[in-house]
């Protein structure tokens, strides 16, 4: 890991290059996502149309599909979408895949009842793009819908910082080649500030396992 001016490659290009190896190391759904899904099942009885935003190899799309949702997976990397399609075929779940950008979502307003947006927001390079993306989540969530957002945090053991910062985290391919990925590491207060600046309603905001988490609803959602 190096700090300072990030020499990170373009995000699409990075994940296209590492997609195959990356997917093999992303087997299981995060426990925080499992508990969000189970809370949503308790709250709504059944899941409707869900979005896995930054779906990667589709592990969380799989968890949503197995909980009964009609799942759409969006990712910026075509290589990762191919991995997600293979996983869906191998594991026997259904996901509709879309190639797109997290801050300019190609979905109509109110399209989703649930959104899982984990470990993706921190890859967007500007604060404006991150806030725009959080507002997009609020826009495409249907009234009464809920989204789970996570980002890497300064609270993680590997970081020695109080304030949020930009960095490059290398991914090491099996041959030893290193590929740099841009991250914005959030401090928890900044994470909350970005949520509050965006057009979403924050239901819950916390730190868990070195990540910031928030459960969000559409703006002005009165429940």
């Amino acid at each position: 890991m190096t700090t300072g001016e990030p020499p990170a490659e373009d995000l699409q290009g990075v994940y296209d290059r590492i997609a195959d190896h990356f997917a093999k190391t992303r087997e299981y759904a995060w426990p925080e996502v499992e508990s969000f899904i189970s809370d949503e099942l308790d709250r709504c009885d059944s899941l409707e149309r869900a979005l896995d935003l930054g779906c990667g190899n589709g592990r969380h799309a799989q968890a949503l599909a197995e909980a009964g949702a009609d799942v759409v997976g969006l990712d910026v990397s075509r290589g990762l979408l191919t991995e997600a399609r293979e996983r869906a075929t191998e594991r026997g779940f259904v996901v509709d895949l879309v190639h797109g950008d997290a801050s300019r979502l190609p979905f109509l307003n109110d399209a989703f009842s649930q959104i899982v947006y984990v470990a993706t927001l921190h890859h967007l390079r500007t604060r404006e793009a991150r806030r725009q993306s959080l507002s997009a989540v609020g826009r495409v969530l249907a009234p009464g819908g809920r989204g789970l957002v996570s980002a890497w945090s300064t609270a993680h053991d590997r970081f020695d910082a109080e304030e949020g910062f930009d960095t490059t985290v290398d991914w090491t391919l099996p041959g030893g080649e290193q590929v740099g990925r841009y991250y914005h590491i959030y401090d928890p207060e900044e994470f909350r500030a970005d949520l509050e600046a965006a057009a979403v309603e924050v239901i819950d905001c916390r730190v868990s396992s070195g990540n910031c988490y928030a459960v969000v609803a559409p703006p002005d959602d009165v429940l």
Binding site: D10, R78, R85, L97, H99, D101
Partner: peptide
């Protein structure tokens, strides 16, 4: 089989 709905300014980035 996958719709490419990247905004046009991002569409060619991955080709490199």
């Amino acid at each position: 089989g996958i719709p490419n709905l990247l905004p046009p300014d991002m569409r060619d980035e991955a080709a490199a």
